[in-house]
Amino acid sequence: MINSVLRFCLIFVLLILLQVLLFNNIEFSGYVNPYVYVMFILLLPIEIPSWLLLLLSFGTGLIIDFFSGSPGMHTSATVLIGFVRPYVLRLVSPRDGYESGSDPSMLAYGFRWFATYTLLMVLIHHTALFYLEVFRFADFFRTLLRVILSTLFSTGFILLIEFYRKGK
């Protein structure tokens, strides 16, 4: 128990650092802004109580917000995916259901499952985030393009990190 708490703390710190030091500085034509810190919410144990999940999402978003100087933006998007995560998990559940006590990882449920799960969650997060960022529906399709491109990149990076984690 303590062990897994420590592990998640480590994952949390690493992902935040990765996001703040590396991914926040990526500038690729203004259309691609990968946000990989979402991965922390993705990796939390399946049976985590919902209130804890929501609070952790809130905290994660808040920290990212403080670092990127955008009060509330990441927080609201991250709380949203914290809220929908149980529904998404139910939607993509494997045929035999989830084993009790398992993590939603690539190691446990395979590449295809993890990729679908990640793509869905990241898409929801990025849609909320980018529309909150511009806070207007003018340029609707341009924002949509940003959402789609960034989602693809974020998902790609998260899958890469997960591959690395699986290999270890």
């Binding site: 999402s57 809130f58 009060p71 509330g72 927080t75 609201s76 709380v79 949203l80």
Partner: peptide, 10 residues
């Protein structure tokens, strides 16, 4: 929580 976030946002 979403309320707090929106409060911060606005």
């Amino acid at each position: 929580l979403e309320g707090i976030a929106f409060y911060l946002l606005t």
